[in-house]
């Protein structure tokens, strides 16, 4: 994992994306007890703003990794032994990257999405497996409730969150 993060940091330094943060299940795992997952979701902010009608082109990023000898396995690119998925971040996800928490993993600097933004992102996705992670985060992570409410209201997720909490 350490070497995967080193590659991601190099990519950021080379300008292949403006910023990144670990998202998805691995970010949740940072704040909860360990659970099974297979891939490392990396939310990236591209150098250029994404317009609504635009086709997102990550070919420069893929080309860079291909030239370094990394190979694909299904939807993942295996970077230093870890399946990575790059997810261009817009809106809520972009803000989640910008307000991510800077951490170190075995001495390598990286950034991870905060539990408050993760709850909003998982609620927004709304699949059963996402709801399980919301429950885990609410039970086990230190949540800034005020911050969470601001995010949920900003992205019209507050009512959904209330319904989720009521559902037990």
């Amino acid at each position: 994992m350490k070497h995967t993060l080193i590659v991601l940091n190099e990519m950021k330094e080379k300008g292949l994306f403006r910023d990144y943060a670990i998202g998805g299940a691995m970010a949740a795992l940072r704040w909860t007890e360990p659970f099974f997952t297979q891939d490392l979701d990396i939310f990236i902010i591209l150098q250029k703003e994404i317009r609504e009608d635009e086709i997102i082109n990550l070919s420069a990023l893929y080309e860079y990794l291909k030239n370094k000898g990394y190979e694909w396995s299904g939807q993942w690119i295996i970077i230093e032994g870890i399946p990575v998925e790059f997810i261009p971040a817009e809106g809520l996800a972009k803000e989640a990257v910008e307000y991510g928490v800077d951490i170190e993993f075995e001495g390598v600097k990286t950034r991870v999405v905060s539990p408050e933004y993760l709850i909003a992102l998982f609620l927004s996705a709304g699949r059963e497996k996402d709801k399980i992670k919301v429950r885990l985060l609410l039970d086990q992570a230190d949540i800034d409730k005020e911050k969470l409410e601001i995010i949920l209201r900003k992205y019209s997720l507050y009512n959904k969150f209330e319904r989720f909490k009521d559902s037990g």
């Binding site: 007890e33 099974f36 993993f105 086990q140």
Partner: peptide, 24 residues
């Protein structure tokens, strides 16, 4: 049991990743 789960949540990220690999 609840307390034990919360204790696991306090492990370092590095330790959690090692546990994840075991789960895989």
């Amino acid at each position: 049991t609840e307390r034990a789960h919360k204790e696991l949540a306090k492990l370092s990220f590095e330790d959690k990743v090692r546990i994840l690999v075991k789960l895989q």
